[in-house]
Amino acid sequence: MRESAAERHDRLLGLVRERGSARVSDLASLLGVSPVTARRDVEELAGRGLLDRVHGSVSWPRDAAAPAAPAAGPGGSGLVIGMLAPSSTYYFAEVIRGAHEAAARAGARLILRISDYRPQEDQDRTEKLLAAGAEGLLVAPGWQHPGDPAAFGDWIASLPVPTVLLERTPAVGSPLDGLDRVCSDHAHGVLLALRHLVGLGHGAPLLMARADSPTAVAVRSGYTEALDVLGLRAPREAIDSVPAELAPDAFEEAVQALHAAVRGGIATAALIHNDVDAIQVVQRLAELGVRVPDDLALIAYDDEVAALADTPLTAVAPPKREVGQHATELLVERLGRRTAGPRRHLTLLPQLRVRESCGAPHAPTGER
């Protein structure tokens, strides 16, 4: 099976972490890729703060723990923390950054493995983190579908070290429900978006969303809950969104459904998950004669690249970096205790960052 970019990034980070620093040309040879690919990977990882880059070489970030296990004592815990994430890009890049920063402040070493949203490989990758010396774990399983927690999750509850779940909410009463966890409250984020659009004079906003991640599932359920809170009915069933580059025909079908809803007077406002889809939808709608925000007020969900659109998109911003920070702090505290203490479920609230796409006056600091 061809290695994914996420897996290659995982190997690259491991090589730099082991060596402390390395030349990009040497990394290309070790990874078995072209120098161009290695440079592109290094630039991406350095841009996310996971590596430092200077004059053809890269090194483990200066604010991180040293590649060797740090000595315990004043200013250093000597801890090794393992982190399993489904991706090192898009949403989880900021979660990883937050965890990395918090680990560095605690004098701990953070080691990372990426599942590339293949939940069947989560357990094996986590076992490799333990084999590498992880004394505690931050785990964001690569679940994509509602049945994945039951099919690929029970092993997490029996891990031999303290574990904190990241951005995952298991079923109430399940074995995983008894673990520490830190999550974004996506239902609250959706309510912020719908309440803002309704406050601008729109009827019930339409939802266009993916269904391929726990965030997508939470946005969909949060949409139903928000409509109930606001006393509204959905103008039509949610439009299924798909990545344009993977399924162009299905993406076009989704855009056409949204276009028909706008032209038919069914909806004047929409919430779209995620940012990339929202940007591409706006571009295609413009080609079809629908203008944002004049004909359609639009809010995106995730706020990764929403501000970079031609018409900057108002967006719900989950507290991704803070999720990583708080989860790491909770794990460090857990590892430092002699007794287990009560488990904690920490839920952080997203913000709404108001820009031009919803038709409201620009609010630089965003709503909360």
Rank of each mutant, 00 (worst) to 15 (best):
A72F: 05
D10A: 10
A102Y: 01
D294A: 10
E304I: 13
G56D: 04
I156A: 01
A106S: 13
V255H: 00
E18R: 15
S59V: 03
G107C: 02
H202Q: 12
S213R: 03
W143A: 01
L112P: 07
E135C: 03
G366R: 08
E304P: 15
V219R: 04
D295I: 08
V229H: 11
L30A: 12
S184Y: 03
R17V: 11
A140F: 06
H100Y: 10
R19P: 08
R337L: 02
E245P: 08
M1K: 14
G142H: 00
A297D: 06
A211Q: 15
G136Y: 00
T311R: 07
S29K: 11
V80D: 07
R334K: 08
E18F: 11
M1A: 13
A261I: 06
A250E: 14
R284W: 00
G78D: 00
R337E: 02
I111Q: 10
R2D: 15
V190W: 08
E237N: 14
E287K: 05
L84M: 03
G73Q: 08
S213Q: 00
R338C: 06
G76P: 14
T126P: 07
R62T: 13
W155V: 04
I81E: 02
V164S: 04
L84P: 08
H188N: 11
A151M: 10
I299Q: 04
G32I: 02
F251P: 03
R337H: 08
L159A: 07
Q144A: 10
V36I: 11
P235A: 03
R368A: 15
H188Y: 14
T314N: 09
L230K: 07
L352M: 04
G75K: 07
G336E: 07
R97T: 14
G189F: 05
L246N: 10
A66R: 09
D116V: 00
V316K: 05
R181C: 02
D63T: 13
R40S: 14
W143Q: 02
A28S: 05
S25L: 12
S59Q: 05
V242P: 12
E253G: 13
G222V: 10
A247D: 15
D116H: 01
A363E: 10
A278N: 06
R40V: 09
R368V: 14
R113L: 00
L232F: 05
S241Q: 12
L230D: 12
L159W: 03
P70D: 00
A309W: 01
P205D: 09
I272V: 10
C358P: 12
S25M: 11
Q144I: 06
E333M: 09
S88I: 07
G366L: 03
A5R: 10
R2L: 14
F152I: 01
D249A: 13
R337N: 03
R109T: 12
A269G: 10
E135K: 02
E253R: 15
D124S: 11
A6I: 09
L330D: 04
L179W: 03
R8S: 09
D26V: 09
P342W: 08
E237Q: 15
G76L: 12
E253I: 13
H145I: 12
P319Y: 01
D310E: 11
V161D: 05
A297C: 08
A38D: 03
S34F: 00
A132N: 07
R263N: 13
T365V: 12
I96K: 01
R62E: 15
A257E: 14
Y117I: 08
A64T: 09
A65I: 02
G264L: 01
L246T: 15
V36N: 13
